[in-house]
Design a protein around this nucleic acid. Structure first.
Lengths: 260, 260
DNA sequence: GCGCCAGCCTTACGTTGTAAGTGCGACCGA
DNA sequence: TCGGTCGCACTTACAACGTAAGGCTGGCGC
């Protein structure tokens, strides 16, 4: 019994070479199965998924070509047959993240119940992705966009087009739709980046901060911060998101009629 | 252009050792001058300033301990006498950036002309810093904050305290002040991050995008994006910032009275 | 004169991304 | 059945990185 769960220094789960438990590989192939060995075939999607999983577990800095190779049961250089380099790999992870949006059944591709419902669903979908992968989400912001007007976190032509087309269908003028696009992306990026960042630094439940920081706060200086420390630590991100989104939509209603 | 550290022979401009042009060093010292050689004394502030300048010119990926050392005329390891490591160096650069805020004569430390004026000035001050250092500003967002409630881009106790105290003076309740703090930081972060990111990707004036992207756009798919491409490329960040900020302040007025 | 020590340099190690070449197994036309 | 080709992983190698450890030097106090 190797790999006892309590002791391993590296939690990676390499699939273990497993000296081919299949007695007759040809038979398996004939039977319609894929590769007989449990070492499943490598491909770009599997690599990207592994990279995302690795980031979720170890953080961005923990992702290394060698470590990623090890995780998928392969030497680092083998990855380069499927991915041109590390930069492109990270871009692929970002694509994967926004790809999750398409799979989300609660996110609509066009405003079938009004534009407010459309944007509400989209915003919540993006937030779900961000919260599901807090360590990876900053990538969505930090990767250079393919075009200056392809703004995170809506980083694909597909979604930008869906966004704009959707609003146009709903009576937005060209200018209003573009303005709404800019406001919406700024809002999502700022809010979600701060929310996942708080999650990352979320070590203890509250009150526990660095000593020197605590000293600074406690000492008469910064008295207000000290007094409000509990309010500041209190996490009401979900309802705040709701409120701020609602307020944004109200503002967009104005934009819609003013620039109509 | 950079990012691949493999080939460039480094175009840095080292100040040139300059074999001590001063004939009598003691005389210079007596005369009240600093170190006689033009190789000025190294210290933490000079290192941080050089690091910021380097990031401004070469980008974040271009900053290396060796290159930074070379820039200040010193071997890489000498930097470690003043800075514990690269992480702390980057934190120092962030401090330096927010330190610029304190120097800004248009930014007030307390609301002497009403809280709206106070926040307006603060917001514009932060935006000025972001635009002055577009390559470095993302650092403000990506460095892990010292405490979860110390939200970028207001990353120091000093400013958070000033913010909260200021609003309390102006009639905000505790809850309203904290809520305003959260909204304000989200707004600034999202807006400015996207603005500097657009500046970074700003290669040509407009229309020039990657070929494959252009193909995707041009081909019947994404027809709306294609049609609105000029509106999308049109940069009205300044006035949009103004409008969005105004709208935020209006909303905070409501928060102030509702949670009052 | 002597030792101390701040400040810088040198050397060295482990790790990173990746260019280049090697080797092996599966397929395929003869 | 046999080479030949080729896809795919492995091996080796290199430059650059962050940084640990220690060495030199020149100006200071005693």
């Amino acid at each position: 019994m190797d790999a006892t769960p309590g002791t391993t220094p590296v939690p990676d789960a390499v699939p273990d070479p497993a000296p081919d438990p299949v007695p007759d590989a040809d038979a398996a192939v004939v039977a319609g199965e894929a590769v007989p060995s449990d070492r499943v075939a490598l491909d770009r999607d599997r690599i990207l998924a592994a990279a995302l999983a690795h980031i979720d577990e170890q953080g961005l800095a923990g992702l290394t070509m060698r470590r990623l190779g090890h995780r998928v049961g392969v030497e680092a250089m083998s990855l380069y047959r499927y991915v041109p380099g590390k930069e492109e790999l990270l871009d692929g992870v970002v694509e994967l993240l926004i790809g999750d949006l398409r799979m989300d059944p609660d996110v609509l591709h066009s405003p079938t119940h009004g534009w407010q419902d459309f944007l509400q669903r989209l915003a919540h979908g993006v937030r779900r992705v961000a919260l599901a992968h807090p360590k990876a989400f900053p990538l969505v912001a930090s990767r250079p966009p393919e075009a200056p007007w392809l703004r995170p976190p809506l980083r694909s032509l597909e979604w930008v087009d869906a966004f704009l087309s959707g609003l146009l269908e709903e009576g937005f003028s060209d200018e209003a739709a573009v303005a709404a696009y800019r406001s919406f992306t700024s809002f999502l990026l700022g809010t979600l980046l701060l929310e996942v960042s708080a999650h990352g630094a979320d070590v203890g439940p509250l009150d526990v901060v660095d000593d020197h920081l605590a000293d600074d706060v406690e000492a008469s200086r910064h008295a207000t911060v000290w007094r409000l420390r509990h309010d500041l630590a209190h996490d009401a991100a979900a309802t705040e998101f709701e409120v701020a989104l609602e307020s944004l939509l109200e503002r967009l209603t104005l934009v819609r009629s003013e620039l109509g």
